[in-house]
Design a binder for these strands. Structure first.
Lengths: 137, 137
DNA sequence: TTAACACTTAAAGTCCACTTTAAGGCAAGC
DNA sequence: GCTTGCCTTAAAGTGGACTTTAAGTGTTAA
């Protein structure tokens, strides 16, 4: 038979709190079934979906876009092109963000190096960071 | 003489709205001087600082941590080690985040490929995404 | 049998980073 | 002189993603 996970157990499995899971359900990101006591339960299918959802979320995709994705999925295989397009847009945004972060991180690294140079006096006392930065442009 | 920028001009220069600049000032992230009419003005020094602030922010550093940095800077060169430590922590966090994003993006890319395979029938109809993903592990 | 613990709902609260609103002051140009 | 457009302040509102609170029901273990 299929394994049924109660919300607490499921939460531990996927790394979310029970209020968060109920919140996700209220937002239409996940669904649950009910047992004879009216309590939610989840199956391995739900574990898989939530796993993927967290990957989507981890790329920076908003809950709102994830919801749109869920709605398309519910409409069957005919919406595969739209889902692919949606994910391609998310990929582009995510790539842009990663590249921006990397660029900003580069400047931060130079600042850390600049502090090191100031501390061990390998950078002239009078050279300010902006001048120092220009060396790398 | 040094150029004085009024808040609107300064905002355009650095790409922030005037309410945001006032908000940053109220949060202790930037300072401004006042002219004879009591209006704020900024100098090229402020342009430089805001430029660097935006790089810090762009790494994911919170306004609160930027404020701590500002406070350390105000205490003079003696706090250079603390500032460097703070920035090193920010760098570490930022690197971790970038790597996580990249990992999640990888899964997203596989999903897009999987959709392509479904659409052009190079992936078997019955193979689900989780099984497909295992090919790359 | 009673305490502990899991579950239920709806609604309000939180945090961050702004943005918007409201009400007004001052200077330049027509 | 009046309109336009900049500036001022304080306070309230917004959006996203939860988290917390309140009030209650049901199951399990000692």
């Amino acid at each position: 038979m299929e394994k049924r996970y109660k919300i607490g157990e499921f939460g531990k499995l996927v790394g979310l709190t029970t209020p968060t899971l109920r919140y996700y359900e209220s937002e239409g990101l996940i669904v649950s079934q009910r047992d004879d006591n009216g309590n939610r339960y989840y199956t391995d299918q739900d574990v898989k979906w939530l796993g993927f959802l967290l990957h989507l979320k981890g790329t920076g995709m908003s809950l709102n876009d994830i919801k749109r994705y869920v709605q398309l999925r519910a409409q069957g295989d005919g919406t595969i092109p739209q889902r692919r397009d949606l994910l391609e847009r998310v990929r582009e945004d995510s790539l842009v963000e990663i590249r921006e972060r990397e660029a900003n991180l580069k400047v931060l690294n130079h600042k850390i190096d600049w502090y090191a140079g100031k501390l061990d006096k390998t950078i002239d006392e009078n050279e300010d960071f902006e001048t120092y930065l220009k060396r790398f442009q």
